[in-house]
């Protein structure tokens, strides 16, 4: 069996880009609010459906779908934080309670989506031009996905390093009391982070949906690899997430080659990320964070 390694590498970049876009929001809110928001999966799904409605049902095209879906899902993120997590945290809920609440919120969103759009898978009908470069098979969608991930990485870097809000996010993430004492409006910083985080989840949902299909479990299907990226990268660490996303993408795609060579089912593909997740948690729960200055 000959393996097209160039394609494997390229596919790793695609997988990594998707996971990065999905993980940025999770890692930022996890770092700031200090609990893993399992409903992030449903932010992804919701984003995909809103994107679908705008692009397909309203026929307004893909770029506008991204914008609208970012805004709407971002606002949903803010509402969820304000309506559920903030009151819970104020009442002194433990991290376990917050996690369970996020799963409960996930139920509400997931089944509301199912009730609104039914459980039948939906497909984007936008056709993407496909072309070959040497041994590589590439589609327009994948190019967009990779460009979005790169743009996101650069933009987030500038926001985190250069802007006031970015500095406030970093400060609040590393020490909320000190941030508050330095006059940072911590409450506003958290709300903005939830907005951006949920909005970016919507991007991940649209790209995933356009590449495969949309159904109410779109987000849940990829949430554990996204958790793997978040944890491998170090919670709240944006630069760690970039590296981790590509490590997991690479591991999954090289792993598939390995699975075929070993004669195992390729449905184990998703298990590779789970395994990395578990091993990271056990061996090095702080992830790659030490390799980077906390951001």
């Amino acid at each position: 069996m000959t393996v097209n390694w160039a394609q494997v590498l390229f596919n790793s970049t695609i997988t990594g880009s998707l996971y990065l876009i999905g993980a940025v929001g999770l890692t930022l809110t996890y770092g700031l609010s200090r609990f893993p928001n399992f409903a992030h999966a449903e932010f992804i799904t919701l984003g995909a459906y809103i994107g679908y409605s705008v692009a397909e049902q309203a026929g307004l095209g893909f770029p506008l779908a991204l914008v609208v879906s970012f805004l709407v899902t971002g606002i949903v993120g803010i509402l969820c934080y304000r309506g559920i997590f903030q009151p819970l945290a104020k009442r002194g809920a433990t991290i376990i309670h917050l996690m369970v609440a996020s799963i409960a919120l996930g139920f509400i969103l997931r089944y509301s989506i199912g009730a609104t759009w039914t459980w039948k898978p939906l497909y984007f009908t936008t056709t993407w031009s496909a072309f070959n470069i040497g041994p590589l098979r590439i589609t327009g969608l994948w190019v967009w996905l990779i460009l979005t991930a790169i743009a996101l990485a650069i933009l987030m870097h500038f926001i985190l390093v250069k802007t006031k809000i970015g500095k406030a996010i970093r400060a609040t993430s590393s020490n909320p009391e000190l941030a508050l004492a330095s006059g940072i409006n911590v409450d506003r910083v958290i709300l903005i982070t939830w907005f951006i985080g949920a909005g970016l989840a919507a991007f991940a949902g649209i790209f995933r949906g356009a590449d495969t299909q949309i159904w109410p479990l779109t987000g849940w299907d990829i949430i554990l690899p996204i958790f793997a990226v978040t944890i491998l990268g170090g919670i709240g660490n944006f630069y760690g997430a970039i590296v981790a996303a590509f490590i997991i993408g690479l591991a999954e795609n090289v792993g598939v080659v390995g699975l075929i060579a070993l004669g195992l089912s390729t449905s184990y593909r998703i298990g590779i990320a789970f395994l990395i997740l578990i091993i990271t948690l056990i061996v090095r729960p702080e992830g790659l964070a030490m390799l980077f200055r906390r951001a």
Binding site: I96, I231, F274, I278, I282, P285
Partner: peptide, 21 residues
């Protein structure tokens, strides 16, 4: 030895791996 949130995520992933198997 893990924190509550890490334990939760790890055993959740463990369950999904078993189901995959």
């Amino acid at each position: 030895r893990l924190r509550a949130d890490y334990l939760a995520i790890a055993v959740l992933a463990f369950g999904e791996i078993l189901r995959l198997i």
